[in-house]
Design a protein around this nucleic acid. Structure first.
Length: 491
RNA sequence: GGUUGCGUGGCCGAGUGGCUAGGCACAGGUCUGCAAAACCUGCUACGGCGGUUCGAUUCCGUCCGCAACCUCCA
């Protein structure tokens, strides 16, 4: 069996994955800031790490998956006047900040559930860890890497970089950062423009504020992830994930905070980053309005797409692209994914109609090895999918040529689909058969009646009538398929 | 401007120093009263120019184009 290799942003290499305390694995992924609807680009990251989570479990690891909800502290910008995103939204809509938080947290959960992602083991919130965050700030001040200034507390990047490397995650050099920092207004409280806020003074009008040793205020955005990851996973843990765009400054700051806090410079063993989703070649982004919402795809209510695509189709489209590559979302891509998914599904169904025999036409172990090695190569789902399609091709041609398969291999082959498609990629091939209510039964019976009538017409070679029925049913969105075994229909 | 990454056939997207994924689309075929669907077969690409090499799409250099980050974003 091959070993799992993961691409570590820190070393920019694929490394053999060795957990710190096997069989336990600690994984922290940056979740959403719940100040507006989650868009489909956000979802890609969640789905990417969902597959990673699922695969680690498949390998037998006991994973503690922590994903935060940012409900305070995320500023609009880095200046002193920078406003908290949630507070701003609450003011705008004249509601409680926690109302904003609750609404968009609910929306986020609803969408990621539709995309069939597993829930994290712990989903902590920033507001729920205020004491821990204040203590963390105090600890960093004690260690000498933070200073108070006018009621706010800043992380001292220059001091930090005397002993440690600031820039490891994003691959930056401190000199370059100094030279390229834009001049922002209102940075007077900082010793150096690179310093970042870990505790922010709140003015009296601010709706979200807590008492602290430095007066009333709220935590800086980067702080919560440091605090909550180490609280639940320890000062040293295995995987930290998030979107590429968080490398700098968010993850860079997080790592610096961790190190300053614990003196342990290897707080995270593997940094994993998923790439961006693009729309017409440009990054989806809330701040530029360049995005669409998941529901617009599921319901087909965006002009950029020709029709609606189900969450499973969207998820499958994501699987056909590696998590570290940018993925361009388009109607063509989704259309192709929809057709491909149907093909995969048909392939699975065809396993049942393969002929019994003493020998098998295909080597199931070989297929299994190909699926496993794809996933072990830094979670390469596109290759996994390609290998599955290879299997489908073999299945189809065997159905055609009536080649046999042993009972044992048949079960094993079906098992592979279940494990790799359903459990690891999280794609439901078989729709959960929702108990058909009465009206649906009647509908089905009526359709069957029309089909029967048409078949009677066909028997009498009354093509005019039979085509009329077929065409009218097509107009209603019902497709008829004639075959040797009779006529089947689908919606 | 700085940093990082990318540029693959009609489209989407893997990967590799020689054996040159996969899906969609397209073409031909099987099936069919005709369709549709399904299935089978076909379709040999890696931005330009140099270099290293027996051999490069893959390594190196350079040029062009694109993107991300450098300010909030998954």
């Amino acid at each position: 069996m091959s070993q799992l290799k993961v691409y570590n942003t820190l070393t920019r290499k694929k490394e053999v994955f060795k957990p710190i305390n096997p069989p336990h694995v600690g994984m922290y992924v940056c979740g959403p800031t719940v100040y507006s609807d989650v868009h489909i680009g956000n979802c890609r990251t969640i789905v990417s790490f969902d597959v990673i989570y699922r695969y680690l479990q498949h390998l037998g690891y006991s994973v503690r998956y922590v994903r935060n909800i940012t409900d305070v502290g995320h500023l609009e910008n880095d200046s002193d006047e920078g406003e908290d995103k949630i507070a701003k939204k609450a003011k705008l809509e004249n509601v409680e900040p926690m109302e904003v938080v609750q609404r968009y947290t609910n929306g986020f959960h609803e969408v990621v559930e539709m995309l069939n992602t597993l829930k994290p083991s712990i989903e902590p919130t920033a507001t729920g860890h205020m004491l821990e965050q204040i203590e963390y700030v105090q600890a960093i001040i004690r260690s000498g890497y933070a200073y108070e200034s006018n009621g706010s507390v800043y992380f001292d990047v220059e001091k930090y970089s005397e002993k440690y490397n600031y820039g490891d995650v994003s691959g930056r050099k401190i000199e370059d950062l100094k030279n390229n920092t834009r001049d922002l207004k209102g940075q007077g409280e900082k010793k150096c423009p690179l310093d970042f806020v870990i505790w922010k003074r709140a003015d009296p009008k601010h709706t979200m504020q807590w008492n602290s040793p430095w007066g009333k205020g709220f935590p800086g955005w980067h702080l919560e992830c440091s605090v909550m990851s180490t609280k639940y996973l320890g000062d040293e843990f295995d995987i930290h994930g998030g979107g590429m765009d968080l490398k700098f400054p968010h993850h860079e700051c997080e790592l610096a905070q961790n190190t300053a806090y614990s003196g342990q410079s290897q707080s995270v063993k593997y940094w994993l980053h998923s790439n961006m989703l693009t729309l017409n070649g440009e990054k989806m982004s809330k701040s530029t309005g360049q995005f669409f919402l998941p529901k617009q795809i599921f319901e087909g209510t965006t002009e950029l797409l020709e029709k609606a695509y189900s969450p499973m189709v969207v998820r499958f489209a994501m699987m056909q692209c590696h998590y570290r590559s940018t993925m361009d979302l388009s109607n063509d891509a989704l259309f192709a994914a929809e057709k491909g998914l149907a093909r995969l599904k048909k392939g699975l169904e065809s396993i049942d109609i393969l002929k019994d025999g003493d020998q098998s036409f295909l080597d199931v172990n070989l297929i299994e090895a190909s699926l496993e090695s794809a996933m072990n190569d830094d979670f390469n789902t596109p290759v996994l999918v390609a290998n599955l399609f290879d299997a489908v091709k073999q299945i189809n041609s065997s159905v055609q040529n009536e080649k046999p398969i042993t009972q044992e291999d048949r079960q094993k082959l079906k098992g592979l689909f279940d494990v790799y498609v359903t459990q690891i990629m999280g794609i439901q091939l078989i729709e959960s058969s929702k108990s058909s209510d009465d009206s649906k039964t009647i509908e089905n019976d009526l359709i069957q009646l029309a089909v029967d009538l048409r078949n009677q017409a066909k028997k009498g070679k009354d093509w005019e009538t039979s085509d009329l029925i077929r065409n009218e049913l097509t107009k209603l969105g019902i497709q008829l398929k004639d075959s040797k075994d009779g006529t089947k229909w689908s919606k």
